[in-house]
Design a protein around this nucleic acid. Structure first.
Length: 380
RNA sequence: CGGGGCGUAGCGCAGUCCGGUUUAGCGCGCAUGGUUUGGGACCAUGAGGUCCUCGGUUCGAAUCCGAGCGCCCCGACCA
């Protein structure tokens, strides 16, 4: 991507309504744009990060054997009447009446829908266990949205639901999810802990939450629940066991705040100059910075390197803006790109400077060996 | 939902208390020209405003009064 043609509006000052580090930095680095209270647009670089987190989540979920589906955000309220949660969720649920006077809602979570799907399509113990998951936008009309995307009214969540024939099965699935969650959070560069928690509105008998450590309050990024038969009984979701008897599914549900991981990753990885992205979720792995765009040798070398990175499938941003070097460095710091390739004065000796954002170590490397150096670094 | 605060140019703010030299300003950003180019360069010129909205008071309202809308912070709840 060429910065001059990209859409990553950085700024020196954060909007006055931004209070926390992640909110300020996401605004300043041009990752998000506020549309309304608790409602955000992901700008291109922010969206790239979000998709990377999504990919990590998807990869780990698939590895457990969970199957990805996509449920509707729009749900009929009658499913919620069945489960008895229509009133429990209260005002937090965004609801409206459609033209046929049916009560509809925008899903804050999907236990009801998935239970409905499973009761219609699964009926024998031979088909079990099954874990279904999705990555999808959830809607919750929070009393007080805050901290930017940390508590927003519309957010991206990974929610998985396991269906078992017995408690032992539930324990196994729960354990698999717990392991997958550890891989996901550490894969996204989060420092986290696991705590026993209250099951809240979701219900169930046992739950643990994954909490990201940061200097602003602790951030809950994942929550796993052993639900039992609460939903399957109320919604009459039964299967036939090996003795020919009808039994309710034993359920578990497992949530990850995908968009919240982005904020948590920033809260745990920044310095006074800006974001320090973990390599795994950085919007770009490398930024190529010609120190002076007016200098044709620097610009041409930078263009060549840019092309080589692109050809090598290394996600690269070329800062071809006609700005002062200092201003570009400041932006590169702010945006947290893990590796910088600075094409500056040393170009007369055929060298470029490679700098690592985290720790600020740098090294002069012959331009011909830059790609190799970077590939080695990224493969470590 | 309880308590508090804010709304003036794209962003950050001053001006509001005490109405009138304010032709509504400053910084950043933006445009044009020139000089610059390794840590947010400089000079010159310029564009950009329903002072949140509606109503009221007044000879006169960004400024006073009322209502509404929007936004933020603290609390309880959440991924």
């Amino acid at each position: 991507m060429r910065w001059s043609q990209y859409f990553m509006p950085t700024s020196k000052e954060a909007p006055s309504d931004a209070d926390t580090i992640s909110h300020k930095l996401m605004s300043r680095a041009g990752l998000i744009d506020k549309t309304s209270s608790g409602v955000y647009t992901y700008l291109p670089a922010g969206y790239r990060v979000l998709r990377k987190v999504e990919d990590i989540v998807r990869k780990e979920m698939n590895r457990t054997g969970a199957i990805e589906i996509l449920m509707p955000a729009l749900q009929p309220a009658n499913l919620w009447k069945e489960s008895g949660r229509l009133d429990k969720m209260g005002e937090e649920m965004i609801r409206f009446t459609d033209r046929h006077k049916r009560l509809m809602l925008f899903g804050p979570t999907h236990e009801e829908v998935v239970t409905d799907i499973v009761r219609k399509n699964y009926n024998s113990w031979k088909q079990l266990p099954v874990i279904l998951y999705q990555i999808q936008t959830k809607f919750r009309d929070e009393m007080r949205p805050r901290f930017g995307i940390v508590r927003s009214r519309e957010f991206l969540m990974k929610d998985a639901y396991s269906f078992e024939m017995n408690e032992e099965g539930l324990d196994i699935s729960y354990g698999k999810m717990k392991e997958a969650y550890k891989n996901i959070f550490s894969g996204c560069g989060l420092d986290f802990s696991i705590q026993q928690a209250d099951s809240g509105v979701i219900g169930g008998k046992f739950s643990e939450e994954f909490v990201a450590k940061g200097e602003c309050p602790e951030l809950e990024v994942g929550h796993i629940f052993k639900l039992g038969t609460q939903y399957s009984e109320s919604m009459k979701a039964f299967f036939v066991d090996r003795n020919g008897e009808e039994k309710p599914f034993i359920m578990g549900c497992y949530g990850i705040g995908v968009s919240r991981i982005v904020a948590a990753a920033i809260e745990g990885n920044y310095d006074e100059k800006g974001i320090i992205w973990p390599v795994s979720i950085a919007p770009f792995k490398v930024i190529v910075i010609p120190a002076n765009t007016e200098n044709s040798q620097m610009l041409e070398t930078a263009e060549k390197l840019y092309k080589s990175f692109t050809d090598s499938n290394i996600e690269v941003l070329l800062d071809d803006r006609n700005e002062s070097a200092g201003s570009k460095f400041a932006d590169a710091d702010l945006c947290g790109i893990p590796l910088w390739v600075i094409v500056g004065r040393k170009i007369t000796e055929g060298k470029a400077e490679i700098r690592i954002r985290r720790g600020r170590k740098s090294e002069d490397v012959e331009t011909g060996r830059v790609i190799e150096w970077v590939s080695d670094f990224l493969n470590r």
